Computed example of a mutant assay.
Amino acid sequence: MQTEILKNGNIFGDNANDHVIVSVVIPTRNRPKIVSRAVKSALAQTLQAIEVIVIIDGPDEETVKSLSQIADSRLKVIELLENVGASEARNVGVREAQSTWIAFLDDDDEWLPRKLKLQLELAEHSQFKLPVVSSRFIALTSKGELIWPRRLIAPAEPLSNYLFARNSLFAGEGFMHTSTFFTKKELLIKVPFNNKKYKHEDWEWLLQVSNLENVGIEFVSEPTAYWHSDIGRQRLSNMGDWQYSLEWIRSVQHLVTSKAYSGFIMTIVSHEASIRKDWSAFWILLRESIKLGKPRLIDYLLYMVIWLLPQDLRQQIRALAKRFKSK
C-alpha cells in the first residue's frame, strides 16, 4: 500500500499509475473498519485500471493502521493534518486524482463489482461533454432491502423537481446518492463541493452543475451500490437540524423550481423538525412553503402524514404496502 501524508500542502509518496482510467475518492474519519470495507469493494471492481484515494480527514492513527493492511498498489492514503469536513476532503481527493474520470464512495457504503464499468461505458457514449452519471442502489434497512430511486429522471425534467418534488407517499422515488456520483475531473475542478456546508452539499453541487452548458444527468438503470442506511449509526442527514436545512434551501432558491422549494420544505425539512418534535416549526414551514413555493395536494398530504404519523408507523405501513404489492 502507498501511504501518503499531506503536510503543509506537500504530498509525500509514490506517483500514481499513469494508466489510471478512473480515480475513486473516499473521505473518511475515525471509522477504520467501515472504510476498509468500502475500499475493498472499490478495489474489487471489474474495471481494474483505477486508483483508490482515501482522504483521512484529520489525524487518525487507527484508520491509517487499518488501511495499511490492504496490500494493493492502487490504494493511496492521504492523511490531513486537520479536520476540514467531508466536502473539502472530497475536493482534496479530486485535486490529487490522476485520471479524467472521478467516482465518489462514502466510507460507510459499498459498490457492486460492475459499478465503474457500467458508468464508464455510459459516460463515454453520453451525448453530453460533461455527463454526471448516477445509478440505482440497494438501500439496506432494518425493514429489508429497497431499490432506490424507484424512477429515473424524465427527459427535460428539472433536476430540483426530480430530487425534491415527490409524487408518491413513500420516500426513494427520486434520488441521487453521493456514492453513485461519476463525472469528469474537469467539472469537479470547475465547480468544487462547497466546503462551507456540512450537509446537503451533494445536492447543492448537483443543482449548480446541472445548470451549466454541456452538463447532463445520466443514469445506469440497475443498482450498482449498497447504501447502509439503517444500521444504528447517526448520519448528519438524520440529525433533525431543520433550521439548517431551511436556511440551506433558502440559499439555493435560485437553483430550484417553486414546486421543488415547497417539496423540500414540506418533506425533508418537516421530517427533520418532526424528529425533534419541534411543533413550533409546523406553521413556520407551512407558511414558508405557501409564500415562496408552489405546494401541491400531494405536498399537503405528505406534510400532515409526516407530522401526525410516527416514523415507525410510517415504516410499518410502507413494509405492508411492499408485501401487498409483491403478491
Rank of each mutant, 00 (worst) to 15 (best):
V256D: 00
T183A: 00
T100Y: 13
K197M: 14
L159P: 01
P113F: 05
E124T: 06
S251C: 03
F219T: 06
D72S: 03
Y303I: 03
L292S: 15
W283T: 12
K117R: 11
R233W: 06
E124C: 02
D312W: 15
D60I: 13
I298M: 10
A225N: 00
R114K: 14
M1T: 03
F219H: 14
I34M: 09
S289T: 13
P310I: 08
H200W: 03
V256L: 07
I78T: 14
E201I: 12
L81T: 12
S73C: 11
E218C: 03
I189A: 07
Y261F: 12
I21K: 02
M239K: 13
E204D: 09
K327N: 11
A89I: 14
L320C: 10
K33A: 09
I21D: 13
S210Q: 15
G172D: 06
V25F: 14
T63A: 02
H271I: 09
S251P: 09
N161E: 10
L169Q: 04
A16I: 11
R90S: 12
P158L: 03
P192C: 03
A123C: 04
W148S: 11
T28W: 03
S142G: 05
D106W: 02
N83K: 04
S134A: 15
I102Q: 01
D299P: 00
L236K: 03
T257G: 05
S270N: 08
N15L: 14
K325T: 09
L206W: 09
Y300A: 13
F324M: 13
L130V: 13
N194I: 05
L118N: 04
S134L: 09
A260T: 06
N211G: 06
N8T: 04
V84P: 00
I138C: 02
V252M: 05
G93S: 07
I70H: 01
G13D: 01
H19C: 09
V209D: 06
L169F: 09
S229T: 13
S87Q: 05
S280W: 09
Q48P: 09
K76E: 15
L140K: 06
L320H: 11
I55H: 04
W242T: 00
R136C: 04
N195S: 08
L118G: 02
V64C: 15
S66L: 11
G216S: 07
T100V: 11
